[in-house]
């Protein structure tokens, strides 16, 4: 039931692109044929894989750093009032500084390498995760914790069976939005300081004023994002939040 509207929405987007490309000159909006040809050529020659691999590596490691920083800081803030007072200005600073500043500074500190990209991503994307976790920890149902204590569950089991599952939806949601942010920062870093990656390719083709190649790389990017969303996040979310909607085939009991 949910696939049809989604397919229609993607189809509508595609049609809009097609129409625009028919009306406007190819140097401004290249048509799907030109773009897919460019993409196919990139894939055939192998450049697509190499640059995509570099970008995915940076995004992946950057995301790990983001989650580690975000979860640690968010947890400390959620658990301790002092921690909250100490760290909330850090988070505010992190939220306020434009990601491009992180990128420039990391490139200046670490040089034009992957480490700079990963640190830039991690430091720019962690505040949203921290905030989400901070709220998540404050929202833990303490009544359930005292239920666990009443039934003599040990501390480890209380964390594992009662607290952790309550934070899981939060973790998934924040990871999702963090991934989006990481992608964007990664392309920025690659654009200004890297000699590989999708962002570098975008910059390169921008220099040659090849709209169809810029579109082709963007399309590749989109396809990968869709794949991650539909092959990883959506099934994971469905599995983890099954209990909210219930088991398929079972009626709501009276």
């Amino acid at each position: 039931m949910t696939t049809l509207p989604r397919l229609l929405s993607i189809l509508a987007l595609f049609m809009a692109w097609l129409l625009l490309s028919l009306v406007l000159p190819a140097s401004i909006v290249p048509g799907p044929v030109a773009v897919f040809t460019a993409l196919a050529e990139n894939i055939r020659s192998g450049t697509a894989f190499y640059h995509l691999y570099k970008t995915l590596l940076r995004v992946g490691l950057g995301l790990v750093l983001t989650m580690v920083l975000g979860i640690s800081i968010g947890t400390i803030m959620g658990l301790s009032r002092k921690g909250e007072l100490f760290l909330d200005s850090w988070v505010l600073v992190g939220l306020t500084i434009p990601a491009i500043v992180n990128s420039i500074i990391c490139l200046m500190w670490f040089g034009l390498n992957d480490r700079a990209a990963i640190v830039a991503i991690g430091t720019a994307a962690f505040p949203t995760v921290s905030i989400s976790f901070w709220q998540g920890i404050k929202g833990i149902d303490m009544q359930l914790v005292s239920m666990g204590q009443a039934f003599r569950l040990n501390r480890i089991d209380i964390v594992r069976k009662i607290i952790f599952p309550q934070l899981l939806p939060q973790t998934l949601a924040s990871m999702r939005s963090a991934l989006g942010i990481c992608w964007k920062i990664c392309t920025t870093v690659e654009l200004i300081g890297m000699s590989s990656g999708v962002g570098y390719q975008l910059n390169y083709w921008f220099g040659l004023y090849s709209t169809s190649q810029v579109f082709a790389w963007t399309l590749l990017f989109l396809l990968v994002m869709f794949a991650i969303e539909y092959l990883l996040f959506k099934p994971l979310e469905k599995r983890l939040t099954r209990w909210r909607t219930g088991v398929p085939g079972l009626q709501w009991a009276q």
Binding site: R242, W243, G246, L250, A253, Q254
Partner: peptide, 14 residues
């Protein structure tokens, strides 16, 4: 018979 239901599928009394 309700073993595999999730709590939110049940009424308050259940």
């Amino acid at each position: 018979g309700y073993e595999n239901y999730y709590p939110l599928q049940l009424s308050g009394g259940m």
